[in-house]
Design a protein around this nucleic acid. Structure first.
Lengths: 349, 349
DNA sequence: GTTGCTTATGACACCGGTTTCCAATACCGT
DNA sequence: ACGGTATTGGAAACCGGTGTCATAAGCAAC
């Protein structure tokens, strides 16, 4: 327990000076102990460490931030409409940060705002963040990454496909797993499969579409342009896109939607038309958000390794600081998996 | 634009010393300007302010935090499983904080952990937060509020019912609006209405149950114990509770569930049994999470003024600092509203 | 015994603000 | 012209750490 009564500060917390005085060394030596400096007598270190333990001393983050010109904060930058995903990412990051001196600070941004970059710049400059984790879809914005470089702020982007620089990236294998998902539909006997793809210009949308095409191609199935409808990852656009596909004749017997929200929109639209899922129509989504499990029928979908990705990203950022030499390199690509539920069945005969 | 070349620091950001030098005053005077000290020559102030603008000077948060022994951070403490709500709260807080010097730092906690209080104590002591906003359900924990008092950390709790201390509380009128929701069912002709209530010991659960009882009582309807099933705010317990109510004979023709997740569970269970919503069974939920609008049929539910509550809470915390004399007092009770969708209809005849 | 090198430690300035205390100036009544 | 009282500005200490550089001790080599 902390023995009180010998503190210099009146705020109750012991300072580095208290430790130095009690251990009969200089501040600097205590600082060396804190920062695991190698050039330090083992005996001295132990003596200081004992005082630190006895006192319950913890270095003041504000003072360190000032002296180091760098805060012990990891920022989370996102413009993600998917609350569950953002929150899971937060948990993943905090998990990686727990037990370290780092805390997390959250920064939603508005991709459509012309001030976005300027805002982020001000934010990073002022807070002097140790590093940031950038969530999709804003993680695809290269200007943002360049800004981090420029401001000397470490960063890790989370995304759908591996980029050049593994140090700044954690991704999942979207293309591969979507191919797998589509093949699952093909194996059920579907031949006319629609795609509700994500918005133009999104890496994730592109990757998922490529995976979809891979599967059809290697199965020798045709893919007319009409079977592809675009949405923008929202429920409503899922409904619209589905209706466009339902108007086709012959109607597709299965649909892959690039995310769960749109897939839920497809289910919704099907119900409005009296199309029974999965009897008349099989559906696969992507993300495994709670809605996927909770609508009827429960959606077959792809589960992103969200928490692990966030954890890996945060560890990449702070690993060499907190881990010392024992910091293992973090993986850059984590596998997604297909979660089979009840929205897929063989096509009607 | 900032004129470079006259800075003392090499990091690019101008410091208070730069401002002082260019304005030909002392640091202290600049500090007085920044902190809106009243005893200051108007002319001097303007001169300094001009230099500040020209230089694009912004005080260094780390240095201020060290000197003031108080960080410019507002913490968000939550143990909420509802991602959408947490994220909306985050947005509300950030909205209130935007344009100020404050940033938000997020701290999920585990209510069930015996270390919870200790963890939060360490967190608050170390980070020297300016204040915290506490989300339900952990906001009902009085020990946590006491801890904040003890550590001299401002706090605002967000909850379901008004507490004694309006300065530390922002709430919604759950009881009233649930009464209204239940009366909506009664007006449709329902006489046998089930309640899927929230977990024991939760203020929100209690308030909502009271509102439910209020409505039945004033309509002269009986409320046998068997019509009340308890869940713990999760989808799965909603399913279980619904099945218990479905086993009743006669079966209730309407169900109010204390949150949307459980309401979604009720819908799910109904479908499993072939009970048609809303023809055979009307359902009302609470929260207006995205799932409410996206399942079939879309749920009639109660919308909490989440963003406004969070905004009000954050303004309560920082209002007197950033607002100066113009800081308006923030409301402590914000009204919820009933959102009518398609899950309610008259009972089968 | 002196030189030269390595290792362990300390003195002191510094990060960029705030606060305390005091001096200087202006304003005032007599 | 004089002392007394508000206002204002400045010097220096401080918040609690880190960086730079100097120095002392220990030891091999000359």
């Amino acid at each position: 327990m902390a023995k009180r009564g010998t503190m210099s500060g009146k705020s109750g917390q012991p300072t580095i000076n208290d430790v130095a005085r009690l251990a009969e060394v200089s501040k600097k030596t205590v600082s060396r102990v804190i920062n695991r400096s190698p050039l330090l007598n083992e005996e001295t270190r132990e003596r200081v460490e004992k005082v630190i333990r006895d006192l319950g001393y913890v270095p003041n983050p504000q003072a360190r931030a000032l002296a180091l010109r760098r805060n012990f904060l990891v920022g989370l930058i996102h413009d993600n409409p998917n609350a569950q995903m953002v929150l899971n990412m937060q948990h993943g990051i905090l998990e990686a940060l727990s037990g370290t001196d780092f805390e997390m600070i959250v920064r939603p941004v508005d991709r459509t705002s012309p001030m976005m970059l300027q805002d982020v710049r001000t934010f990073l400059e002022r807070q002097r963040l140790f590093g940031v984790v950038i969530l999709p879809p804003i993680s695809e914005n290269d200007a943002l990454a360049d800004l981090c470089e420029e401001l000397n702020c470490r960063y890790v982007r989370i995304g759908s496909a591996e980029l050049d620089d593994a140090d700044h990236m954690v991704a999942s294998n979207d293309r591969e797993v979507v191919r797998e998902a589509t093949e699952h539909l093909i194996h059920q006997g579907h031949k006319l499969i629609g795609l509700v793809e994500g918005p133009d210009g999104f890496r994730s949308a592109q990757e998922r579409r490529l995976g979809f095409e891979d599967a059809l191609k290697s199965a020798g199935l045709p893919l007319p342009r009409s079977l592809i409808a675009r949405g923008n990852y929202t429920f409503e656009t899922g409904v619209t896109a589905a209706n466009r596909l339902f108007d086709l004749s012959p109607r597709p017997t299965a649909i892959f939607a690039s995310n769960d929200e749109m897939a839920a929109g497809v289910v919704f639209a099907a119900r409005e038309r009296g199309i029974i899922v999965p009897d008349d129509l099989s559906i696969i989504g992507f993300d495994d958000t709670p809605i996927a499990a909770h609508i009827w029928p429960p959606l077959t979908t792809v589960r992103w390794p969200i928490v692990s990705m966030a954890r890996a990203a945060a560890r990449k950022l702070v690993g060499d600081i907190v881990g010392g030499e024992s910091a293992e390199p973090q993986p850059s690509v984590l596998p997604s998996m297909l979660v089979k539920r009840s929205s897929v069945a063989p096509p009607p005969s």
